[in-house]
Design a protein around this nucleic acid. Structure first.
Length: 210
DNA sequence: TGCCAGGGATTAG
DNA sequence: CTAATCCATGGC
């Protein structure tokens, strides 16, 4: 099987296993903030921080932009790296505001919006794609550590761009399919890519030969 | 107890 | 372009 065929087989396996569920369904405001908070951090710890921000009514670009540094640091401490993340939140929220708010961003072409997000200090490719895919419903595939791990098990490796383009070729512009596929990868990886369960993982059989 | 989590920036080779 | 290091809390 060639790489494209392996991805198709992988996604078929996932759909049969998990069905179609929405992995991350949150308002655009929260996706922008959550995407930064989840960098190198377990989601459960991010949820606590988001709860804190919601209670304070500052879980939005406007809220973060107006809030005190020390207050934000305190609310997001559970996510680790709280000082850099506060700086990053301030940076991206300021940028969103300057651009006219999320409503204005929603009107932008995907490529332009992606370039804009990447221009923010603290927003790399994965964070930008998460925001595009889950916050703005764009067909922009997210490559994370899990995706790399699973691709590696199928004998597929490559740069961020190469892997992203591989998935996007297979998913052909279907934004909802992009969101589902990445969600499946994370669920599967959490279930099987811990040390022990690796033997139970069925992905290796997708390598095929030749 | 030590290791690692849904990264990114910076610096060095 | 790859590798190492820093950022830091929380859970198993």
């Amino acid at each position: 099987m060639n790489p494209e065929e392996r991805i198709v087989a992988l996604l078929d396996l996932f759909e049969r296993r998990y069905g179609r569920f929405v992995w991350w369904d949150a308002p655009t405001d929260e996706v922008i903030i959550g995407a930064v908070l989840t960098q190198q951090t377990r989601w459960e710890n991010v949820e606590r921080a988001l709860d804190n921000l919601r209670k304070e009514g500052i879980c939005s670009p406007e809220g973060i932009a107006a809030a005190e540094i020390a207050a934000i640091e305190d609310h997001i401490r559970s996510t680790g790296f709280y000082r850099v993340k506060t700086r990053r939140l301030k940076a991206i929220c300021r940028k969103v505001q300057d651009a006219g708010g999320v409503g204005a961003l929603a009107e932008m072409p995907t490529a332009d919006l992606r370039a804009m997000l990447l221009g923010v200090n603290g927003v790399g490719e994965e964070t930008a794609d998460s925001i595009l895919c889950y916050g703005f419903g764009r067909a922009s595939f997210v490559i994370d550590a899990y995706t790399r791990r699973i691709c590696g098990c199928m004998g597929i490796s490559g740069s961020y761009r190469e892997l992203k383009e591989l998935f996007e070729r297979v998913l052909s512009g279907d934004a909802a399919a992009h969101a589902r596929a990445h969600g499946w990868i994370v669920e599967y990886a959490k279930e099987f890519c811990g040390k022990k369960r690796c033997e139970e993982c069925r992905i290796r059989i997708l390598q095929g030969s030749a």
